[in-house]
Each structure stands twice: as C-alpha cells, then as structure tokens.
Write a protein that binds this DNA or RNA. Structure first.
Lengths: 188, 188, 188, 188
DNA sequence: TATGAATGAGATTTCATTCAT
DNA sequence: AATGAATGAAATCTCATTCAT
C-alpha cells in the first residue's frame, strides 16, 4: 500500500509548514497521516531521512511542474513567460511545499553536495534553457544557475511574503514583476 | 552587566545558524554565552521571547548598516549602488544573521502584523528611497516594498547559496548582479 | 495492562502522604510505580490531572467502604455505630489516603463546585441516612452535610493525630468518642 | 527593623494559603513582603525554618486570642461558650492562618515531638480548663487533648469548608453547633 | 544590614525510537 | 506489514540559595 508513504510525506510537509521544524513530531505526523507511529519507521529509517525524502520528493514535483509546456531548446520571451508563470502558480498552489523548502534549506540538514547533485538531476532542462539563451547572446554572461536564480528563485521569497500576507499582488503587479525578471537577465 | 544580554542574543543567533531552530537548546545557548541556564530567564521570559528578540535586534542592526553613507532623498544609480553593496557586505559578513532571519520568517513564530510594524519602523528610509525614485519616474510603478524586495531582498537567498557553497561569485559577477538588480527596478 | 494506571495512582498517593505535595515529583512516582516517566503521561495529561484523579479514585473507595453493612434507610444507633466504625477502620487502614485528602482539600487544586458534585455522587447514601434521621426527629435540625460532618468528618483530623503519634487511643476511648459523636448530633 | 520579619512571615502564610505549598517560592515571598530575596535569609536560615516559624508564630497568636476573657479555672458553659466563640471568630478572621496550618500539619515538616512541646507550652491553659472540668465530673473521662479536640479542633475543618464555600452557616446553625460540641464532651 | 543578579540542580513535560503483539 | 504502548534521554523552565556590592 504505497499510498501510505505518500500520506506520510504529505503530513510531514504540512506540519512543518504550519508548525515549524520544532512543531513537527513523529507522533503528529502519524496522526495526520492516519497511520501508527511505528509504521513511519517501515518507510523511513529515521526522522532525518523522512525530512530529506520530503525535500527530494518535492524537488521532483516542482521540476516536473515548472517545465510543463516549455520547450527548453528555444529560449524566447514566450518560453520564459511560461516558465515564470508555471513557477508562480506552483508556489501559490503549494504554499506548504515552499514553506518547507525554505526552512529545510536554511537548516543544517541541507547538504551542499547532495543539493548540487539533485539540482543537476532535476533541473537540468531549466539550466539548459538559460544556457542556450546565454550562448545565443540573449541573456547575460553568467552561469546558468545564477540566471535561473535571478529569474525564478526569488519568486520563492516573494511568494512566501504573499502567503504570509505581507504583500498583496494583482494582475498588473504580476505583469510588472515578470517584466522585471526578464529585464534582469537580459543582456543590455 | 548588560553585556550578558548581548552575549545571550549572539549565542542564540550563532547556534540557530549552525544547528537550526530545532538544534538550539537553552542549555547550549547558556554554555555558548558562558552564563548559567537560569540566567537566560532573567533577561528573556521564555524561548519564544528570546527568539523574537534576536530577530528584532538584528533587524535594527541591518537597517543601520545598509543605510550607511546613503542619502535616501536623492535616488540615483550611485546611491543605489551604495545601498546594494552595503546589503551585500552585511550579508557576507554576517551569514549567521541571514540564516537566522530566513528560518525565523518561515517559522510559525513569524507574525505578519508585528513584522509590518517593525519593517515600517526600521526600514522607513529604505522605502523612502524607492518611493522618491518611483515618484520621480525613475523606478517602476510599484509599492516601495516590492521595489525594495526586487532590488535587495533577493540578495538574501543569493548570499545563502554562497555561504552554503552552492555558488561562487567573483567581482565580475557581482558587477553583473548589481546591474541586473538596477535593470529590474528601472522604468523602461 | 490497565493495572499500570492503578500503580501510578497508588504511588502518587503514597508519596504525597510521606513527602507532602511538594515532595512528590513525577520522577519519584514513576520509580515507585515501576514505570518510565513518560508512561505516566499516557494515562494522565499532566501532574494536576493525576492529583485530581487520585482524589476522585479515593473518594470512590472511601464511600464504598464506609457504607458496608449499613442500611441507610433505617437510622438507628446500631446503624450509626457501623457507619462510624467503618469510617474509623478505613482511616486507620489507609493513613496515606487521609493525609492525601487533607492536603488536597487545603490546596488550591480544590474546587468547590467539582467537590460538591463528587460529594453528591459518591456520598448520597450517607447524606440520606442523616436526612432520614433528622426527618424522623432523631437528629438535630441541620443540613445533612453538617450532621455528617459532626459525626464522621472530624474523625479525619483525629485519625491524623493518631497516625502522627500525637494521641494514643484505646478501646475505652473509642467507645467514648463514638458516644460523643452520637450525642453531638442527637436532638435533645 | 523587626517589622520586616513580621512582613516575611505574613507573606509566606498568605502565599501558602492562596497558592499552596508548591506555589510558594522564596522569590514570591520576597516580592509580597517587599524585601529583597537575600533579606529573607538574614531572618531565617532556610525555607524550612521559615515555614516552621510561621507555624509557631501563629500557634502563639491563636492561643492568645482564644483565651481572651476566659477564666480557665472555672469550667462552665459560659466559659466554654466564650472559648468556642473565640476560636470560631479567630478562624473566620484569619482563613489564611487556618489554611496554612492544615497544610503544614499534613506535611512532612510536621514533627510529632516538637508539636507536643509547642502544644503544651502555648495551650496549657486550654488543657487546664478541660482538666478541671473533667476532674469536677462535668466532662467525659478523657485526656484533656481529646476533650479539646472534640470541642474546638473540629472547628478547623468546619471553618475551612465555610471559607471554601462548601457550607453556609447562619446564627441558628452556629447555636446548634456550639450546643453539639457541648453535648459531645459532657459526661452523660 | 540589605540587595538582587547569578547560579545550577532539579522539576515537569516531550518525543524519537523500539518491540511485543 | 502494521500497531501503539512503553521507554528514557533531553528539552524547557523554576527556584532555593549564595555572594559581590
């Protein structure tokens, strides 16, 4: 019954998003996932492993989502727009996932090497999009990671501010932000 | 001996940066600050209060630092450059402070209203800088908070990536990033 | 294994009797009951709840014991004698229980309303005994609670004095005390 | 400034009455008495000594109060009435004192030998009253302590019930209770 | 004599993990 | 495979006592 594994992952993510890293106990995860405490340990070696798995699972999901309908070999404003909107929509639809990721990446669980490998594995097409654009003289002369960061990753903090209610955005502002991101990476 | 309070705050910040929110225990803070456990409770009502105080203390410090040598009534590329570099240098010199802030803001301790009030109190000059520039037709037509976010706040995630060793930057790239930020907020 | 709950209750009662309310720690209760500290919290939400439960458990036990072989609808000297002796024997056989109750009732845990409800629930037959006697013109014209108090409850302090070794009693004195109690409540 | 000592004693008594033995900390006593924490230790060796002193101080006060206007060499109903009413009024006027005493006597601080000595010292006239009455054939053939207990000490639990609001008494009932006490100790 | 900041042992409570069923 | 009661180490917080001022 592999959906138990899924339920446990989702429960952990939600709990961290709402109660923070300290607020997540294995007992609470079990209750939220509707399984027994011991059951968690049949799917995950320990708490740390569970947290790492949530992270990886979500990276996989994000990468799949944001590349939807994007042709990464043809860098253009239209492709970029699709990429940017996919990212935004995912973040808005999954505030727990975002909240989790930010806490995870700032925590000591986060491991540079492992992260680089996962990035490479899951976000290769995204990086390729920026590489192609840079090599065609469209984007600034920077490593693809930096272009990706400038264009997409700052949406994370922005989304968090929206979710927490610090900023309110409307269609006009979204248009402006998309445009700002495009201008930031554009050569000249 | 009011420097005890300072030592406790610094110890808490460092520990959170290195061990995460969950890894920071009051015992460890006491040891790191070289005081007895009970002493912490003479200065801070409980753990939550301590964490909130670290947050406020650092906001105060950041705002003082990044406004150094900036005339906020004259928005110009030179002033912007100073602001951006101040921010960058502060973040690089105080990676713990950054790491702390990100975790704090993603945690359930974070309170929207309180945060807005503190932002208004401490970062008023920064917001004024962007307001003046916008009203003069220099910057995009956006709330000052958003301009500030686009220009400066994404430096937070970027710095974190550097600190964690995911990205390496040199002078040329810094120049590019400064330019990218400027282009992002510029009207036209 | 529901006898664990029983063991915890008994351990708490004994410890309070011997070490006082302040001397009873959850660690000691656990050791005395031969369970782990955490186990207590599976059965009782917190220390206060545990103390309240000890109280209720013992009220239940007392009421059952002192009504043994007493027909409460026939108030007479013989019935009274049985009631009085039952009470005395229970107190002598369970000095811990007594010591606990006195401390509990003098402590701030004690809640008037809750107590009145428990009294009504558990000691109804005792009160009826005194009511019937009063209505038949045998006992003084007083609320049943007061008659019960005069006749039985002062045995509590008396027993405590014996337990603590302040007073020594023999059969002759018991006879006298029983007689004194009877005279106290008798009309005329 | 010996009134500091008095203030500390009063503060300890009040706190125990209201917050229980566990609720009384030396810090709270200091605050309530309006002195510094360390000052308490100039007057009392430690917490236990302080608690014992409160006890003794109050015994002294009670004995002085209840013997007011009583001629202990002439046992009679009038003298008894005065004694009984003095006791009642003291208890009603000083519910904290009562509440303290009950908790103290049930606690492990209470020491049989010391208590007997203090009783003898402070309540000698009361015991003499009952001895004279017994030797004159007026009261039951019992040790004076027991007569005193039957006549007066059960007022303690009764008063506590009133203070806690479990029982309400009026003049008629007081008259009845006084009469009941008298009947209890009377020979025949 | 009086103060109150500081101490650190100890109290209550939580929670990751195990294991008999 | 799944359960959830039990564990006990560790976390937070309190408080009797000391001591420099």
């Amino acid at each position: 019954m592999p959906d138990k594994r899924e339920r446990i992952l989702a429960a952990a993510e939600t709990l961290i998003a709402h109660c923070g890293f300290q607020g997540m106990s294995m007992q609470l995860v079990a209750k939220q996932a509707n399984v027994a405490t011991g059951t968690i340990y049949r799917y995950f070696a320990d708490k740390e492993t569970l947290l790492r798995c949530v992270h990886e699972e979500r990276l996989l999901e994000v990468s799949a989502t944001i590349l939807h309908n994007v042709n990464t070999t043809e860098p253009s404003h239209a492709q970029f727009r699709q990429l940017w909107l996919n990212t935004l929509h995912y973040l808005q639809a999954n505030p727990d996932s975002l909240c989790y990721r930010i806490q995870y990446e700032a925590s000591p669980l986060f491991d540079r090497e492992e992260e680089r490998q996962m990035s490479d594995r899951y976000f290769k097409p995204v990086f390729e999009f920026f590489e192609h654009g840079r090599d065609a003289g469209l984007f600034r002369d920077m490593p693809a990671e930096l272009l990706g960061f400038l264009a997409l990753e700052n949406l994370m903090l922005l989304s968090q501010k929206c979710t927490k209610g610090c900023i309110e955005l409307d269609d006009y502002l979204y248009q402006q932000l998309l445009d700002a991101s495009w201008n930031a990476i554009l050569k000249r």
